[in-house]
Design a protein around this nucleic acid. Sequence first.
RNA 1: GGGGAGAUACCAAAGUGGCCAACUGGGGCAGACUGUAAAUCUGCUGUCGAAUGACUUCGUAGGUUCGAAUCCUGCUCUCCCCA
Length: 306
Amino acid sequence: MTGKSYDMIIITGPTASGKTGFAALLASRLGAEIISADSRQVYRGMDIGTGKDYEDYIVNGRQIPYHLVDIADPGYRYNVFEYQRDFLEVYNSLKQREVLPVVCGGSGMYIDSIVSGYKLIKVPLNHELRNRLEEKSLDELTAILASYKSLHNKTDVDTRKRAIRAIEIEEYYLHNSGTDHEFPSIKPLVIGIMFDRETRRERISKRLKSRLQSGMIEEVKKLLEGGVTADDLVYYGLEYKYICYYLQGRTSYDEMQRGLETAIHRFAKRQMTWFRGMERRGITIHWLPGEMDNAEKVQEVLLYFR
RNA sequence: GGGGAGAUACCAAAGUGGCCAACUGGGGCAGACUGUAAAUCUGCUGUCGAAUGACUUCGUAGGUUCGAAUCCUGCUCUCCCCA
């Protein structure tokens, strides 16, 4: 590899675009290792529903090392802050070993957090503040949060719990300049895999059908039996949410399948919106047509990488 | 064969003479997003448009009326009940 000016490669794209297989092939060519950027594949035991295709990581009989998959128990609530921290740890160790990191995943925010270097400081619990806010209504909390920063959406004031945490963080920022936790500036080559809308939807529908036939419902059942609560599963969204409702008898199989299909289509659309947003903010994504076979895609990427 | 109900925009479904380009929901599209992000939230959704603008719509063909998705008549189709 000559004259490489990128610190890492990122492979992204909406769900069902064939990221993993491609990333693995690319990694095998470059002697690289994969760092997942998938907010759900971090959980152990959530395999079919999150599309952990373990066999995709085996290229020509060789196991491609991958990271940040299966690192948390189901039921746990992993988040961006932890992702950024965990990513950095892996990233640094790869750099130390002079191994090229290939990030692969479709969680736009996770990718953005490492590319744009979100400033996420470790904010400890502030019990005094929490006691003070305990009795406040959501409206009051919203007003308080608004006094710290302008609210550009309702994400932070969705529930009282989130609002209190958001205030806690803002309060902490107020007294801690935040320079103690610089995220390094990383220069990535960002590759996106793109199918036209119709094809994307077809692929999603087809994949859903095959997952349902290959034990996805059993997987959810097993999670429930293993002590993961229904609430946790609903929180995980998509297949875990819809199948959980089905197992609880709240929806018929048909309703589950149809609702889930729609939900995944919408999810893919939101992913695309996120990617467009990143581009608008100045991050260049090199889109490759999904139809192109993986070997050819690898060639394309190598061109960028020279 | 007889009787009844109904046909509204991509789908479902309100509207029963002017306030209707037409409530609402779904779907679709677009956007937002810095500690839940597979989440959460917002906007648009007849056509053309920058538009407070123009044009074309409520099965179909006519009619009544200043004015019809709404009233009348014929036709077509769908559903239900009785034979």
